[in-house]
């Protein structure tokens, strides 16, 4: 088990991204999962996909093995609404190469869309 990159992680470390979904994004998602109905707002898996994007691409980054995600959806996100998504390291367990992170998505004016927690294995 190579823990060089794990050992560079710190509790409290955070990564974030901004994203605005279009009506076309939502149509493509509906086609992708063969859903023949219109969707009011942004489907929850697209919000969850932004957490996945941050975890896999940024913090911890490539080599991340996504084990768990818990989410509470407080309010639907709207098409065209600027979203800010962040993940923050909340706990490091070196003996198992496990990283806990809090995950957050907020919308216009900072309104709460979704919060939750992720667990990933990071041993590369």
């Amino acid at each position: 088990m190579n823990l060089n990159r794990f050992d560079a992680l710190r509790e409290g470390q955070s990564a974030s991204l901004n994203r605005t979904f279009t009506a076309q994004d939502v149509r493509e998602w509906c086609e992708l999962c063969q859903l023949e109905q219109s969707w009011p707002g942004i489907p929850e898996p697209l919000i969850a996909g932004l957490f996945s994007c941050l975890l896999g691409e940024d913090l911890p980054g490539h080599g991340t093995n996504y084990l768990k995600q818990a989410m509470t959806f407080h309010s639907p996100a709207d098409v065209g609404e600027p979203l800010q998504v962040s993940v923050t390291v909340s706990r490091l367990r070196r003996d198992k190469a496990l990283v806990n992170l809090t995950t957050l998505c907020t919308g216009r004016g900072g309104r709460l869309i979704c919060d939750g927690e992720a667990l990933v294995l990071f041993q590369h």
């Binding site: 109905q37 996504y66 995600q69």
Partner: peptide
Amino acid sequence: SHGMLLFSVVRSLLAQTWPGAVLHRQNLMF
């Protein structure tokens, strides 16, 4: 697969089975 692509398939089936239902909470393990 992306884990959240699998979640997309789940969410789609939920929407087809219970149209208009609101998803409040979701726990996932892969």
